[in-house]
């Protein structure tokens, strides 16, 4: 029999107090948690609702940074002009995220905390150097997103901790692309995000590539980045990614696709993400 409790938190402090030393779980949008409850993945704990905490719901701009509250929904990301202009990869990820109704409740914090290898916001945030700000009742810390994920479903978050917000750097040349079996309601087979800067000669002077659903966690693709650096992003370069990309990834066979297929198409997705970043950003 299910043995859950419930508390609503209206402030961050209240939420942290409820989490502290308790057998408690955070619920924001609920799009992950409700299926977890149904399947028995979550049992017998107190559910702490944080969706009404106003301090977790904001998108702010500094000179070179954007800050996003953990409870910002995917729909809010999609509609945000700041995100569209300064974090195009995240805008693009939001546009292909699940479906419009799920986007209305799913939150960016929840998408990261669930730590799915296929979490669609993660690669986009990774190429924008996202830093995750985490609080517990007695401490606060920040972790680069690249160090946040530990394994499928596992992050550095402790049970008494809460993501409060995410900080990302502005970069107009970024892009995100998703390969799924459907145009909507798809869990990704492969996702790729890129952030690319060219010098005056059209040579890649800095480059960040992140990938989803091809490793136990969303990852930065270091080999691919090194391969691309100081090269022209022309067709020859972009068609020769396969070796480097395959050093970055460790895909598995799952219900959506085989590891071999993921190996075949990941370089293609990287190529397209780079083209999006360079030529098709909004």
């Amino acid at each position: 029999m299910k043995e859950f409790g419930y508390k609503n938190a209206t402030t961050i402090t209240e939420a942290l107090t409820l989490l502290d030393g308790q057998n408690a779980r955070v619920v924001a949008g609920g799009t992950n948690v409700l299926p977890y409850i149904r399947s028995g993945k979550y049992t017998d704990c107190r559910l702490i609702n944080i969706r009404d905490i106003k301090d977790l719901n904001f998108i702010k701009e500094d000179s070179d940074r954007i800050t996003i509250g953990a409870c910002v929904t995917i729909s809010q990301l999609k509609k945000s002009k700041l995100i569209l202009e300064f974090v195009p990869a995240l805008h693009q990820a939001a546009c292909v995220f699940a479906d419009p109704t799920i986007c209305n409740t799913a939150t960016v914090g929840g998408n990261l905390a669930s730590a799915s290898p296929a979490a669609d916001t993660a690669p986009a945030l990774l190429v924008h150097d996202a830093i995750v700000f985490i609080k517990s009742l007695n401490s606060s810390r920040s972790v680069p997103l690249s160090e946040f994920f530990k394994a499928p479903g596992t992050t550095v978050l402790q049970r008494n901790e809460l993501i409060t917000h995410i900080e990302i750097s502005k970069q107009k040349n970024s892009g995100f692309i998703k390969l799924g079996m459907r145009k909507s309601m798809s869990i990704s087979i492969v996702t790729a995000a890129s952030s690319v800067t060219l010098n005056d000669a059209g040579i890649i002077s800095s480059c960040k590539i992140a990938l989803g659903a091809v490793a136990p966690t969303p990852i930065r693709a270091a080999h691919t980045e090194r391969f691309l650096l100081s090269k022209k992003p022309d067709d020859d370069t972009l068609s020769a990614l396969i070796k480097a990309t395959n050093l970055d990834i460790s895909p598995i066979d799952d219900i959506r696709a085989s590891a071999d297929y993921r190996r075949e198409v990941t370089p293609v997705m990287v190529k397209r993400a780079i083209k999006l970043a360079l030529y098709e950003h909004c």
Partner: peptide, 8 residues
Amino acid sequence: YYIPTAAD
């Protein structure tokens, strides 16, 4: 089990 959505 993927049945088509309206977008597909």
